[in-house]
């Protein structure tokens, strides 16, 4: 256990859910548009509130996460985004680009000047282009180094979006097949070992309660678990419509239950949103049922926030929602 797990009696310090403290490296994965970065940032916040020293790494360099957490846009230089005096936790953030990871790698391995010149911008493209997966491997290799150095209690990695998550995570095993020896091979071996080590690394899958994202996350889950041996943390279903039992009846019926009478225009307006809301909830329940069937993973549901743009305050809300006890699939399906 890496994170402090006995925080009882420490007042407002938030207890960290068990799953979040299980490994040092936490990789957050999902298709584009499902909110992986949001989930990565809220997890970081939650762990820091529980007293952990967290490093948030944006692989595709989404700078916007910085301001959302109260700092500057993320860049290659690490910055402290938030500190909590109460439990001593903090969130630091940075990006990692392949070029930068490559430079660091050469430094680390003590390669000479010649090789560094070869790694100059133009040749980097060539090396990366002619050894596919290399870019990804370099970034993962850097994360492996951070883990080895114990650079933080928790290292949260926001993986590249839309369709690139699987190639990114598979780069090491692909290179193991293509490259028989040498430092690249060693690097690939070590990265594969990290990914498959359930004591060191786990993966949070993020999806939406909609048909296509559900199909995709089920596929991705089996891919990552079977092919790479990744440990899967609870599934995060983002942007869930809040359950509202009152949407099962007409406005008139609802008003009657609460001993009110409504003007006709109000009833029409409410019936309109009720119809819409119920349709969303129905299809959401259908997707939950499909997840119950297809994916035996506990899951955490995050509420859909009534806003088009995420604000720092929203992250605190989402962090609290993430702290909830994960729901076991069978319990929902009963």
């Amino acid at each position: 256990m890496i994170l402090p797990d006995t925080l009882a009696g420490m007042g407002p310090v938030r207890a960290t859910p068990v799953w979040l403290g299980r490994t040092r490296v936490l990789v957050v994965v999902g298709k584009g548009g499902v909110g992986t970065s949001t989930v990565a940032a809220s997890s970081a916040l939650l762990a820091a509130k529980g007293g952990a020293d967290v490093l948030l790494v944006a692989v595709d360099g989404k700078p916007g996460l910085g301001p959302l957490l109260g700092g500057q846009p993320l860049g290659p230089a690490e910055q402290t985004l938030r500190t909590f005096t109460r439990g001593g936790g903090r969130v630091r953030g940075r990006t990692i680009s392949p070029e930068q990871a490559f430079g660091d790698y050469l430094e680390l391995k003590g390669f000479g000047r010649l090789l560094r010149r070869a790694a100059s911008a133009a040749s980097f493209d060539l090396i990366a282009g002619s050894t596919p997966g290399m870019e990804h491997l370099l970034v993962l290799g850097k994360i492996k180094e951070l883990d080895r150095e114990k650079a933080a209690d928790l290292i949260i990695v926001d993986v590249p979006p839309a369709g690139h998550a699987a190639p990114f995570l598979r780069s090491a095993s692909a290179l193991q097949r293509a490259v028989a020896s040498g430092p690249v091979r060693d690097q690939a071996d070590e990265v594969s070992a990290l990914l498959a080590d359930h004591q060191r690394c786990q993966c949070v899958l993020v999806t939406l309660p909609e048909e296509t994202p559900v199909n995709e996350v089920v596929e991705l889950a089996y891919d990552l678990e079977d092919d790479l041996g990744l440990a899967l943390a609870p599934l995060v279903v983002n942007a869930c419509w809040p359950e509202r039992p009152g949407l099962s009846m007409s406005a008139a019926a609802a008003a009657k239950q609460q001993h009110m009478t409504l003007p006709a225009a109000t009833r029409r307006a409410l019936d309109g949103v009720v119809r819409f809301g119920r349709a969303r909830l129905d299809s959401q329940h259908e997707q939950f049922a499909r997840l119950d069937e297809a994916l035996p993973l506990p899951r955490v549901q995050l509420p859909r926030l009534p806003a088009a743009r995420l604000l720092p305050a929203h992250l605190d809300l989402l962090a609290s929602a993430l702290a909830a006890e994960p729901i076991m699939p069978q319990r929902v399906s009963q």
Partner: peptide, 14 residues
């Protein structure tokens, strides 16, 4: 330099 780099990093077969 490029070839040397690849060879050092990924081996002669590559």
């Amino acid at each position: 330099a490029f070839l040397w780099a690849i060879r050092r990093l990924a081996g002669p077969k590559v």
